[in-house]
């Protein structure tokens, strides 16, 4: 997974509260392989494309927003279905970070595990950022994970917090299995004691 330290890029404001993962990638694309050449088009597909395949005027279709690598969203971004394909669709479009007041819990974890930085900022800060991005299309912002800060288009600094373990995963681009395998012995001994004490779990 691609490590994350800092990104400076155009931000795209998406003003949809409770933007569920069914919006981020409709269910009919769930069976597609991750390397499907059309994967990038699945992102927010039904908001971006009409039934005849033509583009709508949804903000992400417009220049210069379509070159953005940062999404600034509204409350509860990525709620609903656990589909990790929602993050795959972000990655296919080179979206490196999503800033929102709150996230669906499972989607948040899925982002971390795929090198996409989810940033929680207060609702008022997100509102302000989205407003500025609308006012100045193509405005750039910076997200720095080392210093845990977002710099808005007007240079306003917004500090954010993130779990230290999640921060490490992203900074080092570490995948969980390799972290866990360092503890193979501990798992082994936990399991053998746990099994002895809870035979009903394993051997009903």
């Amino acid at each position: 997974m691609q490590p994350f330290s800092s990104v400076t890029a155009i931000g795209v404001p998406i003003d949809i509260p409770n933007c569920d993962t069914d919006q981020i990638i409709p269910a009919r694309f769930l069976r597609r392989a991750k390397d499907d050449p059309k994967y990038a088009t699945f992102l927010l597909h039904d908001l971006r494309f009409n039934s005849d395949g033509s583009e709508t005027d949804f903000i992400y279709n417009r220049t210069p927003y379509r070159d953005s690598h940062i999404v600034v969203a509204d409350i509860n971004w990525g709620c609903g279905s656990s589909r990790e394909t929602a993050v795959n669709a972000l990655v296919a479009n080179q979206i490196r970070a999503v800033v929102a007041p709150s996230f669906g819990d499972i989607h948040y974890n899925n982002c971390i595990r795929n090198g996409v930085l989810p940033v929680r900022l207060p609702t008022t800060s997100c509102d302000q950022l989205r407003k500025q991005l609308h006012a100045a299309p193509g405005a750039r912002m910076t997200i720095d994970l080392e210093t845990q800060s977002v710099t808005g288009p007007d240079q306003t600094l917004y500090p954010f917090t993130i779990d230290v373990f999640d921060r490490m995963r992203l900074l080092e681009g570490l995948d969980d299995i390799s972290i866990t395998q360092q503890h193979a012995k501990t798992i082994e001994s936990f399991e053998s004691i746990y099994r002895d004490q809870n035979a009903w779990v394993f051997d009903p």
């Binding site: 656990s82 993050v87 974890n109 899925n110 595990r113 795929n114 969980d176 866990t180």
Partner: peptide, 9 residues
Amino acid sequence: GIGATEIQH
């Protein structure tokens, strides 16, 4: 519920 990477784990 968990995601696909967590399933692998």
